[in-house]
Deep mutational scan, measured.
Amino acid sequence: NKFNKELGWATWEIFNLPNLNGVQVKAFIDSLRDDPSQSANLLAEAKKLNDAQA
């Protein structure tokens, strides 16, 4: 379904953000699993944090 596809894509993108540490990645992935409907918002937050830590 739509959420599974978005969840998978967001998970892959978060895993590939180079400036996040393992704890941050795990926290974002756990949040995605808790509420897949928020995948776009969580991915945006992860990208912002990644950019801030560059």
Rank of each mutant, 00 (worst) to 15 (best):
A40W: 10
D35L: 05
T11E: 15
N21V: 04
W12H: 10
A40Q: 11
I29Y: 05
D35S: 09
N1Y: 03
D34V: 11
A40R: 11
G22P: 15
E45W: 08
A54P: 05
G8R: 13
D34C: 04
S37H: 03
E13R: 06
S31A: 14
D51Q: 08
Q38Y: 03
F28N: 00
L49D: 02
T11N: 08
T11P: 05
W9N: 06
L42A: 05
D34L: 13
D30G: 06
N16M: 11
W12K: 12
G8I: 15
I14L: 13
G22A: 11
A44M: 11
A40T: 09
I14K: 02
A52R: 12
D35R: 05
E45F: 08
A52W: 09
N16L: 12
W9Y: 13
N50Q: 01
L7V: 05
L49S: 01
A52G: 07
N41R: 13
F3W: 12
K48N: 06
K48Y: 04
A44W: 08
L20T: 00
N21Q: 05
N50D: 03
L20K: 00
W9I: 13
Q24L: 02
R33I: 13
S31I: 10
N19C: 06
G22L: 13
L42M: 05
P18G: 07
A54M: 09
N41E: 13
S37N: 11
I29F: 03
W12E: 09
L49Q: 05
K48A: 09
N16R: 07
Q24P: 01
L32Q: 01
R33A: 08
E45V: 03
D34Y: 09
N4I: 11
N1A: 04
E13W: 11
A44C: 11
L20Y: 00
K47G: 02
I14R: 01
N1Q: 09
L20H: 00
L20P: 00
N4Y: 10
L32T: 01
V25G: 00
A27P: 01
N41H: 12
L17T: 00
A27E: 12
V23D: 15
P36Q: 03
A54Y: 08
S37W: 04
W9S: 12
P18I: 07
V25Y: 03
P36I: 04
L42F: 05
Q38C: 06
A27Q: 13
N50H: 01
K47S: 04
S37G: 08
G8W: 15
K5G: 13
D51S: 10
K47D: 02
A52S: 11
L7S: 09
L20D: 00
K5T: 15
L7K: 03
N19D: 03
S37D: 07
E6N: 11
Q38I: 05
K5F: 10
L42T: 09
K26N: 08
P36R: 03
S37A: 07
D51V: 09
N4R: 05
A46K: 00
E13A: 11
G8E: 15
N16S: 10
F28A: 01
V25R: 14
E6Y: 11
D34T: 11
A54Q: 11
L7W: 12
N41G: 07
S39C: 09
D34R: 15
D30C: 09
K26R: 09
L17M: 10
D34K: 14
D30S: 11
